[in-house]
Design a protein around this nucleic acid. Structure first.
Lengths: 385, 385
DNA sequence: GGACGTCGAAGAACCGTTTCTCCATGAGCA
DNA sequence: TGCTCATGGAGAAACGGTTCTTCGACGTCC
């Protein structure tokens, strides 16, 4: 009691009026020590239920909210996870530009909150300005390019990093990605079966894994089946460039009779380009593009899309990251009382663990030649087209 | 020197191996006190440039990164801003569900980062679980409903709150909103001029300001021009309900010949419903909906949309919030050295300052009767429909 | 020659928790 | 009676910075 009053007395001398109640105030009001308050509120220590509930009640009455900063400083944990996209240039925030990012970020946010963490959206630029002002328990990086300096720096400073997209040449704790190779091959097969003779690709110029792996899979397939590759690459972050590239692709002398577009807007771009050249879809041109947008269910004609299932990815990435964050403490079991785990690194042997997740091809009219009546299928109601 | 070695010695006794360098390590390595290090790195104090640069160089060499948690604890500033949507139910994260939120959040993120702050995405539920674990300098709330308990609690605990959407009955530091009344009136006039005789409204059931003000403006207009209101309301967070409501609206005996839909998906929903009833757009039905999506530029026919200019809103909201956060310190000039400003509140007189921002009506085919040749307009090229 | 101002820097309090350590007290037991 | 042990709780040391205060040394000025 005396001690509590004393501790509080020191503060009372200062001209504090409207300050929030601190743990000391609660302790004084409840007539216990701050240790007891902390234990009672956090469910630790050996306290009879009576004391516990009394302290809780006093804290409630005083509107006590523990200082997140102090807790973070002491425990070394902030409950904050960084989320960043590094690929598409420095300046413009491409978040939500493609439905993929939006969906993925949303799922990641939900998953994090479900486990008591919050997401902080951060820029790709590795300028310390913002990054080092925030205590992060870990970071999710979407599509890191080769040799990403940001990832390297984070890793060096001991922050766990999990990437969406297999990392090219930078060290991450773990990564999650779609099986892009299988996806592209599946699409090429799908188009071949629909009658395509020459399949073109609309791809990007950046070095992220998605672009690279997809393009490589396409080229390998061309090589295998003996088709000359027909593709156009453009900077994916520039929407105007996409339309131009689509146009170029269809203007080529060796015009493809089927096209797969790697990026979300490619579907509408290709559709518009096809119209300009008087090509009917799917009769003259089969179309598939990678997109999470359900816009393509309502275009004329509806366009077959490849979904990367961003929600599953976002959820998985976050869960892996939090596992890593929390797992370290459990893992260093030798010294139970350690406040700070040793630097966060994979064991040092071999590549970081990766998870491949399946994609989903949503087949619509744009990739099926008309008259599917030749196949065995149920008759349609007359009302539909 | 001795002191520095001494301070460091205390730490060296513990078995710290891979720990990050702290300010004490830098001080020891540079042969100065930690005060000097702090001052040198933060550009404060009276130090000759030579010392300053030497300290900086040592810090760089040691890879020193100041602890954000410690800084936050001492200065009372975290550089973190919360961002939350409270309206549409507890569970599902509606972020990015509508293009409006996505755009707004993106602009807000950019604006915050530009001023050295980062955004934390937080759930609407006022459960303390996550909220009180994070040190926030302020919060942006999108569309707070009437009597939002979250906003009230934040306000009580002294965190500045700026809302996107005029707050109904909860105390905020400031707010930003579109002039919804003017927007709705503009649309109704636009439709009337296009020949509409009975204009219907597709609206929501929630109590956020957007829904409320828009609906009230519609009802007031009906009252004024002597039209019987024709509207359907549905829970905006449920996409399936939107399609049903659109259908209901067009199935009514007093079917409107023009409809304005308050929510993003209403355009496609209404278009689909119109098809089901054999209504041609715009011949039999004029259509406008509020949306930020450019999908409506490519529907058949293209649909007139009202844009709320979410980027401008997001930028403004964040700037107002940061002004409030930083302004307090500057304002309490009487005691320059104060660490903690007094509780953040508006002066206590009158409502919080609000800013109204204009909207933009993007007129497309869906809201213009055919044969505008009767009006004075340039002849069209023959290629177009 | 002493008072004084300035420069450069060190000392130490403090921010508000968590948690390790330690101390009473009283019961159980030989 | 003396010892051990469990219980309930207090004390105080961190955590890692920022910043207020102090202090010596050195010119300078009257």
């Amino acid at each position: 009691m005396t001690a509590a009053a004393n501790q509080n007395g020191r503060r009372a001398t200062a001209s504090r009026r409207l300050e929030r109640a601190g743990i000391r105030d609660v302790a004084a009001a409840a007539g216990v020590s701050i240790t007891t308050v902390s234990d009672a509120l956090n469910g630790k220590g050996r306290l009879p239920d009576e004391t516990r509930s009394r302290v809780r009640e006093v804290a409630e009455r005083l509107g006590y909210r523990p200082s997140a900063a102090a807790r973070t400083l002491r425990t070394g944990r902030s409950g904050l996870i960084g989320l960043t996209v590094t690929t598409y240039g420095e300046e413009p925030f491409t978040f939500t530009e493609f439905a993929y990012f939006a969906e993925m970020a949303r799922a990641a946010t939900s998953a994090a909150l479900g486990r008591g963490y919050a997401l902080v959206v951060l820029p790709a630029s590795s300028r310390h300005d913002v990054w080092s002002n925030i205590a992060l328990d870990g970071t999710v990086v979407i599509d890191p390019p080769d040799q990403d300096p940001l990832v390297t720096e984070l890793y060096r400073s001991g922050v766990p990093v999990v990437s969406d997209g297999k990392p090219g040449n930078c060290p991450v704790t773990a990564w999650v990605d779609n099986d892009h190779e299988a996806a592209v091959l599946g699409i090429l097969e799908h188009l071949s079966e629909a009658g395509a003779r020459r399949i073109g690709l609309l791809t990007g110029t950046s070095t992220d894994t998605y672009t690279r792996l997809s393009t490589e899979a396409y080229l390998a397939w061309c090589d295998r089946v003996g088709q000359e590759p027909v593709y156009e690459a453009y900077p994916a972050h520039d929407p105007a460039a996409g339309a131009v590239a689509a146009d170029r692709l269809l203007a080529r002398p060796d015009r493809p009779d089927a096209v797969y577009g790697l990026f979300d807007p490619n579907g509408t771009d290709l559709l518009a380009a096809a119209r300009r050249y008087g090509l009917r879809v799917p009769d003259d041109l089969l179309l598939v593009c990678c997109s999470e947008s359900d816009v393509y269910a309502n275009t004329e004609p509806p366009i077959t899309t490849l979904s990367l299932k961003p929600r599953r990815i976002g959820t998985t990435v976050v869960n892996l990251l939090i596992d890593a964050i929390e797992g370290v403490d459990a893992g260093s079991g030798a010294v139970p009382g350690r406040l700070f785990p040793p630097r966060y690194r994979t064991a040092g042997t071999g590549p970081p663990p990766g998870t491949l997740m399946p994609t989903e091809l949503i087949v619509r009219a744009s990739s099926q030649r008309r008259c599917p009546r030749t196949t065995v299928s149920p008759p349609r109601p007359p009302g539909e087209v």
